[in-house]
Design a protein around this nucleic acid. Structure first.
Lengths: 182, 182
DNA sequence: TTTGGCATGTAATCCGTTACATGATTAG
DNA sequence: CTAATCATGTAACGGATTACATGCCAAA
């Protein structure tokens, strides 16, 4: 069997929510897990093909008045494979932060440049925080009684804490940067 | 001119510290910026070739008693290019957290699995924190008077705050997970 | 009429890791 | 003798994005 990528499992996960077409999966990814995940069509469609070949999903074609639509449903085998994967440790990804790379190599004399990089990072984090707030509110409002709500909020909380840490770090760093330049 | 990747700039940055061979660059990356960056030889050597062709670095061959060694030195043009790049905004990288993906799709009934994932993440963050502590100490000790020390500590501080946020989140989440399962 | 949303897919390209190939020197 | 470290490089592969190609329907 061809190797399963994390994209495959993201799709399987999405299909546990409801049967969907590739297009709909992409839409829903954008509305639900975009805080920590992204998928492109270039991955999505080939991946669906693989999953179907592996019998982890089934395809049904809906011919309406529009263009044909391929609706995918997760199979029992698919659920099983997903459960297995969910229980394994996330594979470590080698770190690569362009921001920190720049900060590391910026010379102390270029203080204003460093400060501007840090400020941008701070702004971005603040923006994110706003988004997380909205999302949490919306989730609580629309899925107040769903047993999966807690689980979803955990992921939002993670992102929120990360962003808050960025803001704290930025404040601290900006303080240090501006004090030494004065 | 062939496109410049972030690897190219990481190398240029490294070469501002001192002239080095590809091998030495890799070693130093591992000892200095491994908290937030990584490079493989498969990238490094082709990248050096590109940089030389673009006259951003020069190559000098040292023939000792050992195998020939190619020592690269950053040129004025290289420094200029690097400075430019350091001042631009980091290009946004699409988020992909396997941990959060798993947490999102784990069913509430599989509480213990979620908890174990969270606990692992917590442990990993704690380990990292230890490493950051050592690194900061070592930096202060070895480069106590270097004007670049502050800049370097900023990057360590960033990583530390991120890791601390993970620990806080994990504690909070574990509390919630175990209370609902009880 | 033209833009935007629905809908599917492929091809080119990028950026990166891993594995392979080679070989000398040194320390155990 | 043999394992580790120094040292350079290429080839294969992987996983992902972006751009391309196509086309219909509805709304502005």
């Amino acid at each position: 069997m061809p190797t399963e990528t994390s994209t495959d499992f993201a799709i399987l996960g999405m299909l546990t929510l409801k049967p969907m077409s590739g297009y709909e999966i992409r839409q829903l990814v954008g509305r639900s897990i975009s805080h920590f995940w992204s998928e492109s069509y270039g991955q999505l469609y080939p991946s669906l093909k693989r999953l179907e070949a592996a019998k982890l999903v089934t395809k049904r074609t809906e011919s309406g008045q529009k263009r044909d639509k391929h609706v995918y449903t997760i199979t029992a085998a698919g659920r099983e494979r997903l459960e297995e994967w969910l229980a394994t440790a996330p594979k470590p990804q080698p770190p690569r932060s362009e921001l920190l790379l720049k900060l590391y190599f910026l010379s102390p004399e270029a203080g204003p440049v460093s400060a501007s990089q840090v400020r941008s990072a701070r702004e971005a984090a603040i923006q994110e925080l706003r988004g997380f707030g909205f999302s949490a509110e919306k989730l609580r409002h629309e899925y107040g009684d769903d047993p999966r709500l807690q689980q979803w909020l955990y992921t939002l909380s993670f992102c929120r804490q990360q962003a808050e840490a960025v803001v704290r770090w930025a404040d601290e760093t900006l303080m240090s940067l501006t004090s030494t330049s004065a």
